[in-house]
Design a protein around this nucleic acid. Structure first.
Length: 929
DNA sequence: CAAGCAACGTA
DNA sequence: CGTACGTTGCTTGA
């Protein structure tokens, strides 16, 4: 059926963007769903052939020989179908030495014995022998959409024999698909006549002498072929099966698994059909998984009564691992806005503490008499809780330390916890440990982690909306009852979260230890989260008037370019004003109306990116292209400026949020706004860097960046003597490499040679091909190949290292950085070439980019520590992968510079020095120059 | 109206 | 047919 689907659906229309073809998967899945909808089965099982020899091929080596090779595009699709079946909870069966048809036949026999009705869906006519009153065969006529049920009458009408005699007929006629030649000159009509005359094929052979003419002679000549055919087309009906009939009962699908798999397959419509079909068959929603119990808990209010309770609880449990969940009244209740404005940090409403078998919830917000205006709490659990949270000796597991610490710090005065709420003793942040274990997930929401790692749910109610309805009803009640219900609901949710956090931590710890990532968590990522809290809260000052001026300037440029662009095609376009931001309208204009040569193909047409436009400009000299590119530049800059303007907080500063779990290599990423992609390469772009300025109370910005850190890591990891020596001698790396590759003296390396070598050196760390290098440098492929050969001839250890890193990753399944940060790359063993190649390039890059990330993260910790120890007021503001930006008060420039040089320069022990450039200035732009 | 796509900024 | 990201506006399709 998978093959049928493969040939029925155009393979080109079904592929993921990684190049995995999916037409057979799609066809098979939709066919199965149609069957379930039409036939309404109670039980479903799917059988697969294996690639291994069967008893049929053992007996007859020519069995199924001469079949054309499985098409490349079919590869991997069977495995995907099996995954779909797993996600649907439909058992799949294959048995070594047997064919899928034998398995199906045996199931049909078992079902028959149990008095069940059965439908066999098969593209193999041999299945007709299974037909009885209770068992019908669904045999596809055309593709997989037209599959009429065949009963005994249908077989008789079509072939002229009863279904149980069909294999006799097939034995006489032969089966081309199985490479089973029949009796020459005997077709279905003759065969049916004989069978109806004599009974079985054996009887026909026994009476062979009686049959006259050419056909009779032919039968006698090929009697052995016929007997063999009959033996081979007989389906086994008494196999030992690994799955019982009862176990094939149709069940609800594994929702998560289906979502994940169909995301990967990029099936979007079929997903809903699947859920609908199964819900329709099985009636309503899947029975909710038994919701795991959460320990009983006490709600402690923020008064003296609560203090005793908390003290008792802590006396008993504080020394053991505690799941701590601070319930934040955060962005969730803000008006529907994607990005919480700076200052909207969630207010801590309460804290749930869960020990092994006991739990408390400390209410920090509500409670009678406290009011909800955010007034200060009196002494009560406040100081006790604060002391517990700040005690480094009391081990805690939390979720998202950065968010919690940030909120406590920003809003501490409203929680009754005092101005300075420290959170210490955090031995695990399950957000971070989940990331270290699986750095390439999409989301790390606590609910998702509970789902994947604990196979449970965070939500206690089967239907989360019900809890809300309940509360709304209570709104009718007098205030205090409502408040109480609210606190109870919050407490229950908080305790459950804290419980899950604790369980996740218990599960993650051994895993981290076994892969040697414990240090990475405790000594690097967790402390880094606290450092980032201060960076995010600090933000960076911007010169608002200059920012506004830039916006106006870029707007003018944009409008001017737009007018010129429109004017330059007014004739060709009949005065129509194309939307210059619409690739689709641009395509119509460029390739249809102006009939320009076609560029690179994209999914939706022809590319209009800068590279393509530059090519077109060289070929056509059309002024529109120039104006279009000017417009692109101006709008991009304008957008960047606008985005920055929108995020300036009331304090006149921009507070980015770093994500510590976004990049699979270990890097940070920056959000809302992204301050890691502020322009720098063009003059206009650098003007934007000039609006990031030193803030009030500070005298200068200071930037420090690593020079060529990735190449240094490459030198270290590859142990290439020549490269290492170059770095030790403090050579201009690209000049040095250029001299080696081109065989000239370093001073004779032209700027052109240097540029080529620089592109190549960096490209190598990303898995650049000679094709890619030739395109990038606009040189012939042969020349690019020559360059690379020259490089590897001189730096052989680099080549060996790059080879080795992929080989090792293929063996281990993962790559590792200098600090042991792993990235798993299962696609290294994919049989899809595109996926495999992508995984190989990722394997080349991950140790290098990831080690650089390790190093700067370590440097950030060391810098912070040194600043603290020296009592300096200098503070870190931003990190841009290999660069730190700090703000320095009067009189600290020298000391801060020394700290950066020292701590960044010694963040790792490599076989080459880490070179750090430091600069100071009033703006980011000035500091970097 | 959300999701996908093309485009483009950084290291 | 070099890696890693985030944001944007337009288009598409549910």
């Amino acid at each position: 059926m998978a093959f049928r689907a493969f040939y029925a659906l155009p393979v080109d229309n079904f592929a993921t963007d990684t190049g995995q073809h999916t037409n057979a998967v799609y066809g098979f899945t939709t066919m199965l769903l149609t069957m379930i909808r039409q036939q309404k089965p109670t039980h479903v099982v799917v059988a697969f052939d294996l690639d291994t020899p069967t008893f049929r091929s053992e007996e007859y080596t020519e069995y199924k020989a001469g079949r054309s090779k499985t098409p490349e595009e079919f590869h991997g699709q069977i495995n995907l179908i099996i995954k779909v079946m797993e996600a649907m909870n439909i058992p799949t069966v294959s048995v070594d030495g047997y064919e899928a048809d034998d398995i199906v036949a045996t199931f049909a026999a078992l079902a028959e014995q149990s008095g069940w009705d059965t439908r066999v869906v098969s593209g193999d006519r041999d299945a007709f022998q299974l037909i009885t009153d209770r068992t019908l065969v669904l045999y596809p006529k055309k593709g997989v959409s037209d599959i009429p049920p065949m009963d005994a009458a249908a077989i008789e009408e079509k072939y002229g024999v009863r279904p149980e005699r069909y294999p006799d007929l097939a034995a006489l006629v032969g089966e081309t698909a199985d490479n089973l030649p029949g009796v020459p000159g005997v077709g279905p009509k003759t065969a049916a006549k004989w069978i109806n005359l004599y009974g079985t094929v054996e009887e026909v052979l026994a009476h062979a002498e009686e049959i006259k003419g050419k056909a009779g002679q032919s039968l006698r000549d090929h009697a052995e072929d016929v007997r063999r055919n009959r033996r081979l087309n007989h389906l086994l009906r008494d196999m030992e099966l690994p799955v019982s009939l009862e176990a094939t009962e149709l069940r609800h699908p594994d929702h998560e698994q289906v979502e994940e798999l169909f995301d990967a397959l990029q099936f979007n419509t079929v997903r809903q059909r699947l859920f609908d079909t199964l819900a329709e068959r099985l009636g309503g929603e899947p029975e909710a998984a038994p919701v795991e119990a959460t320990p009983e808990f006490t709600v402690l209010t923020a008064d003296a009564d609560g203090a005793t309770g908390l003290q008792d609880f802590l006396a008993q449990h504080a020394v053991n691992l505690m799941g701590v969940h601070v319930v934040l009244d955060g962005p969730a209740i803000l008006p529907k806005r994607k990005i919480p404005a700076p200052g909207d940090y969630g207010v801590a409403l309460g804290a749930a503490l869960v020990a092994e078998d006991a739990a408390v919830y400390v209410d920090l917000a509500g409670g009678p008499g406290q009011g909800s205006e955010g007034t200060q709490h009196d002494a009560g659990p406040g100081p006790i809780l604060a002391a517990y949270l700040a005690e480094a000796g009391h081990p805690k597991a939390v979720y998202d330390l950065k968010a919690v610490a940030k909120s406590l710090k920003a809003t501490g005065h409203r929680t009754g916890l005092g101005q300075d709420v420290a959170l210490a003793g955090v031995v695990d942040d399950v957000l971070l440990s989940a990331y270290l274990i699986q750095p390439d997930r999409r989301g790390y929401g606590l609910d998702a982690l509970v789902q994947t790692h604990l196979q449970s749910t965070l939500e206690m109610e089967a239907d989360p909306t019900q809890a809300g309805d309940q509360l709304e009803l209570d709104l009718e009640d007098p205030g205090s009852a409502f408040e109480e219900a609210l606190v109870q609901a919050r407490a229950a949710a908080g305790v459950r979260a804290a419980w899950m956090v604790r369980r996740l931590s218990e599960q993650f710890q051994p895993e981290l230890i076994s892969r040697g990532a414990q240090q990475l968590l405790v000594d690097l990522e967790v402390p880094l989260a606290s450092v980032m809290v201060d960076m995010e809260l600090a933000g960076i000052a911007v010169d608002r008037p200059v920012l506004d001026g830039l916006f106006d300037d870029f707007t003018e440029r944009m409008e001017a370019a737009q007018e010129s662009a429109w004017a330059s095609v007014a004739e060709a376009n009949g005065g129509e004003k194309v939307n210059l931001g619409s690739p689709k309208q641009l395509q119509t204009l460029l390739f249809e109306k102006l009939d320009m040569p076609k560029t690179r193909k994209t999914k939706t047409g022809y590319s209009t990116d800068v590279e393509s436009l530059t090519d077109l400009l060289n070929q056509t000299q059309h002024p529109f292209l120039e104006n279009l590119m000017l417009h692109r530049d101006a709008t991009k800059l304008r957008q960047t400026v606008e985005g920055l303007r929108d995020t300036v907080a009331a304090d006149g500063r921009i507070h980015t949020t770093y994500s510590q779990t976004a990049a699979a290599t270990g890097r940070l990423s920056s959000l809302h706004p992204n301050l890691q992609n502020i322009p720098v390469r063009t003059e206009a772009g650098r003007r934007i860097r000039d609006v990031f300025v030193v803030g009030a109370g500070y005298s200068t910005l200071l930037t420090a960046d690593y020079s060529q850190i990735e190449m240094r890591i490459m030198a270290h990891l590859s142990e290439d003597e020549a490269l290492i020596q170059a770095f030790r001698d403090g050579e201009d790396l690209h000049r040095f490499v250029g001299a080696q590759v081109f065989g000239v003296a370093p001073e004779d390396v032209s700027s052109e040679m240097r540029a080529k070598v620089k592109a190549m050196s960096y490209g190598l760390a990303y898995g650049l091909s000679s094709f890619g290098l030739s395109k990038q440098l606009q040189i012939p492929v042969d020349e690019a190949r020559g360059l690379m050969k020259g490089y590897f001839d001189r730096f052989g250890a680099v080549r060996d290292y790059l080879k080795e890193v992929v080989a090792q990753a293929r063996k281990d399944g993962y790559t590792a950085t200098i600090k042991g940060r792993r990235r798993y790359l299962p696609d290294l063993n994919s049989d899809n070439r595109q996926l495999r190649d992508m995984a190989e390039r990722a394997a080349l890059n991950a140790p290098i980019q990831g080690s650089a990330a390790d190093i700067i993260k370590q440097a950030m910790l060391d810098v912070q520590l040194a600043l603290d120890e020296q009592g300096l007021g200098t503070r870190m503001l931003l990190q841009v992968h290999d660069e730190l930006i700090l703000e320095v008060p009067d009189g600290e420039l020298e000391a801060a510079t020394a700290v950066l040089q020292d701590k960044m320069g010694h963040a790792a022990e490599l076989s080459v020095p880490l070179d750090v450039n430091v600069g100071a200035g009033r703006s980011w732009h000035d500091a970097a120059h």
